[in-house]
Design a protein around this nucleic acid. Structure first.
Length: 339
DNA sequence: CGGAAGCA
DNA sequence: TGCTTCCGG
């Protein structure tokens, strides 16, 4: 879910083109959830093979990676491992939200309310183990590396930006910067304006870059203080945060007093919050040790075979790959002209 | 979501 | 040619 750091996180517009040749560590769960909830047919249900197994994640992954490679972007997909036990409450909260959504979905269907049905269907989305395995198989066929994080994927992605193995981490959640990601890209996708289904308006999604150093400088905080601020607002590890304290007040308090222990207003809350443990999760996270990130070659035939097994049209898949190959040829030609 | 068809 | 709508599985 992530925390609300909009107010302190200075964002600058960017473009996919500017990521040419760069390695980007992608929060795999974050992206896969997005695919599952947004790639849907007109009935609001996810895409599925002939047996009814969901395939939206495969569609999203294939087109997204083909597009990344076409643009010279080097994606590394980072998968979540076991969640810290402190996340249990948040996970339970999400489970409950899904159960509620399932009930609301049934009601919307009974009422014939299409728009509501679609909305709640999206909220029921869940990422199954099998989908994760399938996603890794597809990445292998693309020659695109994937890393299994021991714990939160965002933490390992952040680490890669610190070691210099990745230029940036891509996720929708701001948690990445608490984990220390030097650069975070949000909306790491192609499109500008998008119509929201069944409704008559558009939203603009443009890639945006958040630089940890600038966030800290801009707010006049250390990373430790940013984490403390996050704890007051609420993180996945203390979802409700401190009652009555939002981003504005949290910033003011942390700047005035320096650290949680010294803020008079929150002493009572601290007694019931494992704040030291939450700090450790962000500041000393359990991350994968990655020695070398290897990019392989694209197995065109293998991808077509794999996607076809999941009832994708071989024509469409072949076309997507042909487009990618063409883009890469063009790229190497313009490069040759320089030498 | 992202590609392609449809339309001015 | 550029923008909107449609559809994939």
């Amino acid at each position: 879910m992530g925390l609300n750091l909009k107010d302190v996180a200075l964002r600058e517009k960017t473009s996919l083109e500017s990521f040419n040749t760069r390695v980007v560590a992608i929060d795999a769960y974050n992206a896969l959830y997005q695919f599952l909830s947004t790639i849907r047919g007109s009935d609001g249900m996810p895409l599925a093979d002939l047996e009814g197994n969901t395939t939206s994640h495969l569609s999203g992954l294939m087109y997204r990676n083909a597009s990344f490679l076409s643009m010279g972007i080097k994606p590394v997909w980072v998968f979540d491992g076991r969640s810290p036990s402190l996340k249990a409450a948040e996970i339970e909260r999400r489970r409950q939200t899904k159960m509620d959504a399932a009930i609301k979905y049934e009601k919307a269907i009974a009422d014939g309310d299409q728009e509501a049905a679609r909305k709640y269907a999206q909220q029921v989305t869940s990422l199954k183990d099998g989908m994760v395995d399938q996603s890794k198989e597809l990445l292998d066929l693309f020659g695109i590396p994937h890393i299994q994080a021991p714990s939160e994927g965002e933490a390992t992605a952040a680490r890669l930006t610190i070691t210099g193995q990745a230029w940036a981490a891509a996720s929708q959640d701001y948690d990445s910067i608490l984990f220390g990601a030097r650069r975070l890209v949000r909306n790491f996708t192609n499109n500008g304006r998008r119509k929201v289904p069944n409704r008559n308006f558009y939203v603009t999604v443009e890639p945006e870059l958040i630089l940890l150093e600038r966030v800290l400088e801009g707010a006049g905080l250390s990373r430790e203080q940013l984490v403390d601020m996050g704890i007051m607002i609420g993180t996945d590890f203390n979802p409700s945060g401190f009652y009555g304290i939002g981003p504005k007040k949290a910033l003011k308090l942390i700047k005035k007093h320096g650290r949680l222990e010294d803020i008079p207003q929150v002493q009572e809350k601290l007694e019931s919050t494992p704040y030291e443990e939450i700090r450790r999760i962000f500041l000393e996270p359990d991350v994968a040790d990655v020695d070398e990130i290897r990019f392989g070659s694209v197995d065109h035939e293998g991808i077509i075979r794999y996607m076809t097994e999941h009832d994708f049209s071989p024509n469409r898949v072949g076309q997507a790959l042909a487009r990618m190959r063409k883009a890469l040829e063009k790229k190497s030609q313009t490069l040759e002209r320089w030498f």
